Computed example of a mutant assay.
Amino acid sequence: MFEEICPSTLLPFRIGGDKWAALVLRCLEDGPRRFSELRVPLARVSPKVLTQSLRTLERDGFVLRTQYDEPVRRVTYELTGLGRSLLEPMRLMCAWAEDHWDELLDARES
Protein backbone atom coordinates (compact mmCIF):
# COMPACT_ATOMS: atom_id res chain seq x y z
CA MET A 1 0.00 0.00 0.00
CA PHE A 2 2.95 2.32 0.45
CA GLU A 3 4.60 1.58 -2.90
CA GLU A 4 4.15 4.02 -5.74
CA ILE A 5 2.56 1.37 -7.95
CA CYS A 6 -0.10 -0.10 -5.72
CA PRO A 7 -3.67 -1.22 -6.39
CA SER A 8 -4.92 1.18 -3.72
CA THR A 9 -3.88 4.11 -5.91
CA LEU A 10 -6.44 3.00 -8.50
CA LEU A 11 -9.40 2.84 -6.14
CA PRO A 12 -12.33 4.80 -7.56
CA PHE A 13 -13.31 6.01 -4.06
CA ARG A 14 -11.54 7.84 -1.26
CA ILE A 15 -11.58 7.53 2.51
CA GLY A 16 -11.44 10.77 4.44
CA GLY A 17 -11.71 12.93 1.35
CA ASP A 18 -8.15 12.78 0.01
CA LYS A 19 -5.89 10.22 -1.57
CA TRP A 20 -3.51 10.04 1.41
CA ALA A 21 -6.02 9.54 4.23
CA ALA A 22 -6.14 5.75 3.90
CA LEU A 23 -2.34 5.58 4.10
CA VAL A 24 -2.33 7.79 7.19
CA LEU A 25 -4.91 5.53 8.84
CA ARG A 26 -2.82 2.47 8.05
CA CYS A 27 0.27 4.15 9.54
CA LEU A 28 -1.64 4.67 12.79
CA GLU A 29 -2.94 1.10 12.91
CA ASP A 30 -0.30 -0.06 15.41
CA GLY A 31 -0.68 2.85 17.81
CA PRO A 32 0.03 6.55 18.30
CA ARG A 33 2.72 8.23 16.24
CA ARG A 34 4.32 11.64 16.09
CA PHE A 35 4.29 13.69 12.89
CA SER A 36 7.97 12.93 12.23
CA GLU A 37 7.27 9.20 12.61
CA LEU A 38 4.49 9.42 10.03
CA ARG A 39 6.83 11.18 7.59
CA VAL A 40 9.02 8.07 7.26
CA PRO A 41 6.51 5.69 5.61
CA LEU A 42 4.72 8.63 3.96
CA ALA A 43 7.82 10.18 2.40
CA ARG A 44 5.94 10.81 -0.89
CA VAL A 45 3.54 13.15 0.94
CA SER A 46 4.65 16.72 1.51
CA PRO A 47 4.50 17.97 5.11
CA LYS A 48 1.80 20.47 4.13
CA VAL A 49 -0.43 17.80 2.57
CA LEU A 50 0.16 15.41 5.48
CA THR A 51 -0.89 18.17 7.89
CA GLN A 52 -4.03 18.80 5.85
CA SER A 53 -4.87 15.09 5.82
CA LEU A 54 -4.38 14.79 9.57
CA ARG A 55 -6.57 17.83 10.21
CA THR A 56 -9.33 16.45 8.00
CA LEU A 57 -9.15 13.03 9.65
CA GLU A 58 -9.26 14.69 13.06
CA ARG A 59 -12.23 16.87 12.05
CA ASP A 60 -14.11 13.80 10.79
CA GLY A 61 -13.47 11.89 14.02
CA PHE A 62 -11.07 9.26 12.66
CA VAL A 63 -7.90 10.54 14.36
CA LEU A 64 -7.24 11.97 17.80
CA ARG A 65 -4.54 14.64 18.13
CA THR A 66 -2.98 14.92 21.59
CA GLN A 67 -0.63 17.72 22.54
CA TYR A 68 1.76 17.33 25.47
CA ASP A 69 3.31 20.53 26.81
CA GLU A 70 5.61 19.18 29.51
CA PRO A 71 8.51 18.74 29.70
CA VAL A 72 8.92 19.19 25.93
CA ARG A 73 6.10 20.13 23.60
CA ARG A 74 5.10 17.20 21.38
CA VAL A 75 2.03 16.03 19.50
CA THR A 76 0.84 12.50 18.79
CA TYR A 77 -1.84 11.17 16.48
CA GLU A 78 -3.82 7.99 17.02
CA LEU A 79 -6.89 6.29 15.64
CA THR A 80 -10.21 6.75 17.37
CA GLY A 81 -12.68 3.89 17.58
CA LEU A 82 -14.33 5.27 14.46
CA GLY A 83 -11.00 5.36 12.64
CA ARG A 84 -10.14 1.84 13.76
CA SER A 85 -13.51 0.63 12.44
CA LEU A 86 -12.37 1.63 8.92
CA LEU A 87 -9.37 -0.71 8.87
CA GLU A 88 -11.26 -3.86 7.89
CA PRO A 89 -13.29 -2.18 5.11
CA MET A 90 -10.00 -0.71 3.84
CA ARG A 91 -8.46 -4.19 3.73
CA LEU A 92 -11.45 -5.40 1.72
CA MET A 93 -11.16 -2.45 -0.69
CA CYS A 94 -7.46 -3.14 -1.22
CA ALA A 95 -8.17 -6.82 -1.88
CA TRP A 96 -10.88 -5.79 -4.34
CA ALA A 97 -8.44 -3.46 -6.14
CA GLU A 98 -5.88 -6.26 -6.38
CA ASP A 99 -8.51 -8.60 -7.87
CA HIS A 100 -9.55 -5.96 -10.42
CA TRP A 101 -6.13 -4.42 -11.09
CA ASP A 102 -6.12 -5.13 -14.84
CA GLU A 103 -9.67 -3.86 -15.32
CA LEU A 104 -8.91 -0.67 -13.42
CA LEU A 105 -5.78 -0.05 -15.46
CA ASP A 106 -7.63 -0.69 -18.74
CA ALA A 107 -10.40 1.72 -17.73
CA ARG A 108 -7.89 4.44 -16.82
CA GLU A 109 -6.02 4.03 -20.09
CA SER A 110 -9.11 4.14 -22.31
Results as ranks from 00 to 15, higher is better:
105 L>I: 15
80 T>N: 02
85 S>G: 10
13 F>W: 08
78 E>S: 14
80 T>A: 04
14 R>T: 14
36 S>I: 06
65 R>I: 10
82 L>H: 06
47 P>Q: 02
60 D>K: 03
36 S>V: 10
105 L>C: 14
81 G>T: 13
103 E>I: 07
23 L>N: 02
46 S>A: 15
68 Y>T: 14
8 S>F: 12
81 G>N: 14
31 G>Q: 03
29 E>S: 14
57 L>A: 04
108 R>A: 15
31 G>A: 05
102 D>V: 12
1 M>R: 01
52 Q>Y: 12
61 G>I: 08
29 E>P: 01
103 E>P: 00
30 D>Y: 05
10 L>A: 06
45 V>P: 02
105 L>K: 11
97 A>E: 12
83 G>V: 10
12 P>E: 03
73 R>L: 14
97 A>P: 08
99 D>V: 04
55 R>K: 13
30 D>M: 07
65 R>D: 02
71 P>Y: 08
35 F>C: 01
32 P>V: 05
98 E>V: 06
88 E>R: 12
78 E>I: 03
46 S>V: 13
110 S>A: 09
86 L>A: 07
3 E>I: 08
31 G>L: 04
37 E>N: 02
89 P>G: 07
62 F>I: 01
20 W>A: 04
5 I>Y: 11
17 G>K: 03
87 L>D: 11
71 P>G: 10
16 G>F: 09
68 Y>R: 06
78 E>W: 03
75 V>R: 03
68 Y>W: 09
48 K>A: 14
4 E>G: 04
105 L>H: 03
26 R>G: 01
17 G>Y: 06
60 D>C: 02
4 E>T: 13
29 E>V: 10
62 F>Q: 00
6 C>W: 13
1 M>H: 07
84 R>M: 09
78 E>R: 12
6 C>L: 04
1 M>P: 02
7 P>V: 06
73 R>Q: 12
25 L>T: 06
30 D>H: 10
23 L>E: 08
64 L>S: 04
91 R>V: 12
20 W>D: 12
66 T>D: 09
104 L>C: 07
40 V>K: 09
44 R>C: 06
29 E>C: 10
95 A>D: 14
21 A>R: 01
85 S>W: 08
66 T>H: 06
59 R>N: 11
